[in-house]
Design a protein around this nucleic acid. Structure first.
Lengths: 154, 154
DNA sequence: TCTCGCGTTTACGTCAACGTCAAACCCAAC
DNA sequence: GTTGGGTTTGACGTTGACGTAAACGCGAGA
């Protein structure tokens, strides 16, 4: 009666998680050092379970939206402890709301930056259209430029 | 025939620029070190002209939209050689577009995080309403909590 | 048996963007 | 004349998120 690899009982070696999430082993050990991950051990080797995998997902998501590792750890801890006490839940709720406020502000900042940059793009496009219209497509199609560059790679 | 202070010939001391743009002298010297600014000298003291002021504006604007100082230096250099080459403008345009793409991705991440956190809030609110409805207002009114905290500050 | 290849720990290095002294200088005021 | 304020250079400190190198363990395979 072997363990189904797709069930939550499944475990992962460090390499597997690294490959799946495009991170280095060093990063995972670093997260462990900082208390964000606590994989089990098989002898010396780390063994990550389903919960660890989920936490890693959350860590990377948190990083993408600008949280520091410390902040991410706080949030993860809140998630963990929240069966314990109602007071903890209230504090979690407060923290969550604060995050939401901060994130919305951050999003507005980014929207502003996008606007500014797109205005700059329009200006540059106008000038380029006058000066050297032939250069416009080069700047325009980023993907095509990348593909050309990759094709040319020796 | 004295120089009109409002004309582009006007120069600035380090303090003036610092005050105007809310940066420290250390920052301006740092930007100079990194080749982003090249103020003249009066004896030992830095003298910033109109061009330096404009560049500083661009530096800070670039920082706000998420460029690193290195990237900003590149862009500024492009601007300088700008009369010469339209090709440089095309590259700037490409950089701008890349940044817009990155910013939009970041914004989408943030939107996802907001959704997740708000879902968490709803969940917590539901559980709290069952368990300890009295704790809800405490967590709910973030501003009021802040005000109370500020009032209590000794 | 010997060598791969992956794993481990410990410890030091790096990079960005400044902050934080320290020591020295200049100029004006009291 | 010395006190004070602003400036300079130089060097080291800081923070976050890892990278890198050294030195070793361990099981699999030629």
């Amino acid at each position: 009666m072997p363990t189904d690899l797709r069930r939550p009982e499944r475990t992962f070696a460090i390499r597997q998680l690294c490959h799946e999430f495009k991170v280095t082993p060093r990063a995972l050990r670093f997260y462990e050092d900082k208390g964000l991950l606590t994989p089990a051990r098989d002898g010396m080797n780390r063994v990550y379970n389903h919960r660890d995998r989920v936490r890693l997902q959350l860590i990377l998501r948190g990083k993408r939206v600008g949280f520091s590792l410390n902040e991410i750890r706080e949030i993860l801890d809140l998630y963990d402890h929240n069966d314990g006490g109602a007071a903890q839940m209230a504090r979690s709720l407060k923290k969550f709301r604060e995050r939401v406020v901060a994130l919305k502000a951050q999003r507005d900042d980014i929207d502003g930056a996008i606007e500014a940059l797109e205005a700059g793009c329009v200006r540059l496009e106008g000038q380029l259209a006058d000066l050297r219209p032939d250069l416009l497509p080069q700047a325009a199609d980023y993907d095509a430029t990348m593909r050309r560059r990759l094709d040319a790679a020796e």
